[in-house]
Design a protein around this nucleic acid. Sequence first.
DNA 1: CTAGGGTTAG
Length: 647
Amino acid sequence: MRAVSKRRFAAPHWLLRCRLSHTAAASRNEPKSPPSSFSSSSSSSLIEEFTGCCYRRELRAAMRAMDAMERRGVWADSITYSELIKCCLARGAVEDGRRVHRHVFSNGYQTKTFLINVLINMYVKFGLLEEAQKLFDEMPERNFVSWTTMIAAYTNAKLNERALEFLVLMLRDGARPNMFTYSSVLRACDRLWNLRQLHCGIFKAGLESDVFVRSALIDVYSKLGELQNARGVLNEMVTGDLVVWNSIIGGFAQNNDGCEALNLFKNMKRAGFHADQSTLTSVLRACTGLALLELGRQVHVHVLKFDQDLILNNALLDMYCKCGSFEDANIVFTRMVEKDVISWSTMIAGLAQNGFSQEALRLFETMKVSGPKPNNVTILGVLFACSHAGLVEEGWYYFQLMKQLYGIDPEREHYGCIIDLLGRAGKLDEAVRLIHEMECEPDAVTWRTLLGACRVHRNVDLAVYAAKQIQKLDPEDAGTYILLSNIYASSQRWANVAEVRRTMRLRGVKKEPGCSWIEVDTQIHAFVMGDSSHPQIEEINKHLSELIQRLMEVGYVPDTNFVLQDLEGEQREDSLRYHSEKLAIVFGMMRLPKEKIIRVRKNIRICGDCHVFAKLVAKMEERKIVIRDPIRYHHFQNEACSCGDYW
DNA sequence: CTAGGGTTAG
């Protein structure tokens, strides 16, 4: 063998150079006594041929040569075998890999850590964790690479406990984790407590400046919702790379802090980095969350550079759907060469949420014929479309279909759609029965759906029952108190309204201030009720007063039932007057040309009075208005709303 | 021989 490793072989020069640096170390543990037939010249030419095939990545020829060597009882050096294994890996040749494994082990390499690591890695990459684990268990000497490979394997398989357990075992074994180990094992952290421990370990080992470790830290802190910690890791950065930036931008985008994500994106550009697919996906997600259609359009231009990136295109689709520009979504969808279940689901849900139920169902039918297999999210969009259009029978049909045809068990959200469907149709008793019959426990959202139906159909008793259920599950939720109070108010039960308010005060539940925002000239203008900080607030109020005056002349009566405060007469109307969405709509009318759609985004559900207001404004001023609340979209046109007055 | 970032619903 010693002779073999000194042999000349048919490798290209650049390979020869990197090979030589390994040779000395590799030959130390090579099998000791070569078989007697070794020295014959035909054997050495066999090995030479084998080596050449391995480096030229000729898998079939290499395997034939390996068989011939085995018949002669000769073998090559471990570096060459590692090249062969890489070749198997690249070709996805599992069985060939196993044969190399057997060949290598029957020739005395079963103690060679380096080669076993390569084999373990091969099994891991083939997804054969058990075989990898067996090799790992049986190897006589494990080094930090062996441990890291296994930890990464378990992290990728989402076996988090196992990965963390292996880190502990690794430390106990005396192997020191390096940056490879940490960047892998960090992703297995699903508890803040673990993460903090690892972060300490990283500091002690002086590995915090490694970009891989840093991006993993930022990512995991973000995924646990610890954005300030994530930012802390970023702030300590002296040298970073694009992935680190992508981690932090993605972190804020995924935690619904689009503003901060966009700020960081600016900082990234200022630091001289160019956005790639991952960056743009997060930026689009930020635009989606903030309903920034114009900015989203600008991003679209950059997306074209990465034509046909599936994930990026999906994010673009979602942005156009959620920002209410369906024409653009359709254009993107049509042009996409590759469409997956997410692309279809995004479009179906987007159509449904925007009030185009029939179109959503049509698209689903097309998908059944020529698209990928629908998943639970797809069905959710379909059911949403049905409930939105009041298609009770169709909804039930698809609900049954999901179990029978696609083997998808209905989850809470699917039941929620059906409850919504029944509730909208006024079948409140059936909705309650379904809640009691469903396989999963109803949660606060389930009951809230019922509560919403009670409001529309003015069923106070059932509303109180539903609200009590919600308060058991989510006592902090201000929306429930408001909704309940509104329901009492709409049947003039003022004593109950006061009681709800008292309970709120007692439990320290604060109403989230209503906030609406609108994009004008790529600037975001935010309005909060009772807040007069907007520079043009006086002008806006003046316009609003005039508008309300004109609306009242054609029959608009402010619906004061939606005022929570115990105010009287005109004061009640005043407090309604300043609801943030009214301010935003008026501002949009002032600043946007008539043909532009006024797009307003709201942080809480729209109130009944503002809904009537928007419908009348749309009619009288001949404008299209879109208000997006956290759950639904309201497209106002010609005194009608796409939600059909149900929300 | 071992490592980090992105998409649908809720």
